[in-house]
Design a binder for these strands. Sequence first.
DNA 1: TATGAATGAGTGTTCATTCAT
DNA 2: GATGAATGAACACTCATTCAT
Lengths: 201, 201, 201, 201
Amino acid sequence: MPRVVPEYKEEARTRILAAANQVFGEKGYRQATMDDVAKKLGVSKGALYLYFASKEELFEEICRTEPLAFKEILYSTFRENREPLESAGEFFDKMLKRYGSSSGLSFEIFSEASHNPALRRVLKKTQDEYAATLMSYLEEGRKRGFINRELDLRFITYALIALWNGIETIVATGLPVEDARRAWLEGFKAIFLQPPTHKRN
Amino acid sequence: MPRVVPEYKEEARTRILAAANQVFGEKGYRQATMDDVAKKLGVSKGALYLYFASKEELFEEICRTEPLAFKEILYSTFRENREPLESAGEFFDKMLKRYGSSSGLSFEIFSEASHNPALRRVLKKTQDEYAATLMSYLEEGRKRGFINRELDLRFITYALIALWNGIETIVATGLPVEDARRAWLEGFKAIFLQPPTHKRN
Amino acid sequence: MPRVVPEYKEEARTRILAAANQVFGEKGYRQATMDDVAKKLGVSKGALYLYFASKEELFEEICRTEPLAFKEILYSTFRENREPLESAGEFFDKMLKRYGSSSGLSFEIFSEASHNPALRRVLKKTQDEYAATLMSYLEEGRKRGFINRELDLRFITYALIALWNGIETIVATGLPVEDARRAWLEGFKAIFLQPPTHKRN
Amino acid sequence: MPRVVPEYKEEARTRILAAANQVFGEKGYRQATMDDVAKKLGVSKGALYLYFASKEELFEEICRTEPLAFKEILYSTFRENREPLESAGEFFDKMLKRYGSSSGLSFEIFSEASHNPALRRVLKKTQDEYAATLMSYLEEGRKRGFINRELDLRFITYALIALWNGIETIVATGLPVEDARRAWLEGFKAIFLQPPTHKRN
DNA sequence: TATGAATGAGTGTTCATTCAT
DNA sequence: GATGAATGAACACTCATTCAT
């Protein structure tokens, strides 16, 4: 690692976050050691502590930044001018490409959040953000005639998030990725099914 | 703990499993200690090892037996002769009553399964069982006119499981239980919306 | 170590305290490791934590119990019916025998107390106790005609304690023990010198 | 830190010594970090190593130079042409003013010296110097009629040093400074009591 | 069966010291 | 000279597991 440049510190942090993200995802947050993270970077354990005060802080920072990649994929695929189902498929594929078939950190995060209110607050905040974006996407979809009028968009939004998260769980329990993809699309379809009226337009 | 009786061993195991389930759910599998479990039972640490070879085995056994309670709730609420949405609401309420708003062991299990293929196989087996039951329930529903004919029941089944698991994740990230309930019902509705009404629009 | 007996736990604590006392005295509290203490006992590190919650607690407990030995020596040598100077010499010799020429834990304790108010309170309490005993000894001495009437006994008491503690400091800085002994006796004599009147009695 | 000038190096050393003295005194030698010292100076950690080879060397150098301030106070207060008790009071007050009620580095030094013969030698040397000065002061005092003739001046000298050091220990254990002052004066008085008064009793 | 004292490998964290810039 | 990022050897403390009783 070169240094001295002012952006260096930020870059180093980013590198550590990436490595930790991977290591925590592979081994699990609790089982992974700081040494694992350091080794993945080819760096000494002590170096990590120059950038993060503790393993926990490192993890929390991941919880804060991790969603950025997710957000990017989310926002780049669900655009109004496209067929929703096509977007959903692309979303799945991009997520798969990004994270592999390992569910990465998701359960680590949920699991920790279950026992850690502070972390829960962090997650809630970013989730609210997605939810808002997703909901306006759904509102747009409704205007275009998708999404049954009897469904409450606010809660369908949460249901959609839940569906995605849940898709990860069933992959984690061993369902083949291809089946999971179909399940995701089928669930998505259930929400977005064009009502017959649509066809008549 | 009394003893001597032959069924005693099985009963002791059951007791340990219940306590461990609770403790692991509260603290997380990795953070909870065998001592925590022992104390919850008012028993010595060593005693646990008379019934389970290791912490891991204890956890695996929970993964095997835990679904029993879930299965019971699942089967007792989703019966053919009832309004599906009503069943879904009752299911949520029973689950809530059983596990509290804490998601219990779910994420612990998913998280471990992510790094442990053996465990994944165990889970897959029980999940396949649910899936089969749920699918026949859905088939019945379709006969009764619920569930859009364009949806593939096999994958809708997985989607439904995913939806439920996902509902737990959004509770874990801080969504109020009441909102989660609505999301669950709304997602459920999306799948079960009566097509007849639909077509008439 | 045998076990099961109820006094066992107390005995184990005592043994650990003795070993820690010695190790901390030899290496210094901060430099000594828990492993050092464990090894001195031929015991694993973990065992120490069955009896003391932390290194600090172990040290504090030493600060509390250590003075017992000192007290015993103090009380057993300074008895009214003896020549004060003779008592003082015996006190020195007993202390030397007990602690060797190493000053043991004294400075560790003072040093820590300098930065730790809680510890300071503990020490103050035991010191007040000595001071009271010592002062009644001095009062008795005065009745017997020792100790100049112009001296305030309360503060002479503290001065005597200070003198003793100070004797340890000069040993620590390399003064030969024999010289320190003489210094102690000479200082003691300064306080206890029989005024001429005494001789006339 | 400016630079270039030749005396600069010496000045820098002095500055570091002063900062380290303060930091070690506040936190204790072993607990204080080189970073603490560097920060107190507003300098990088690495800079310290340009002037001192190690933390230990820095400490040893303090042990060598620290006594200078002490010596100055000692010599400036104990002058022959003054009332001894008055000198003693002034000495106490000056020391208090210089070091505050914290005992500064004393115990750190004694404690380290207990485990470090090299350091012990350093201290011995400076102490011998004090002792010599103090002893001639006492000899002068004796000529002026103070100090009982039965006391051996050489050892009374050590006793006096011990008394002072000991006064610091009792402050460290929580005795109020004002009481410590009285104890110091009372102990001093015991040594310097004018024999004439004495004899007349 | 049950206990709980003991073990010992392991983990997060610190910090004196080094060295490329 | 000065910096501060990096190192790596420690070290306090934990906990699953064992085993003598």
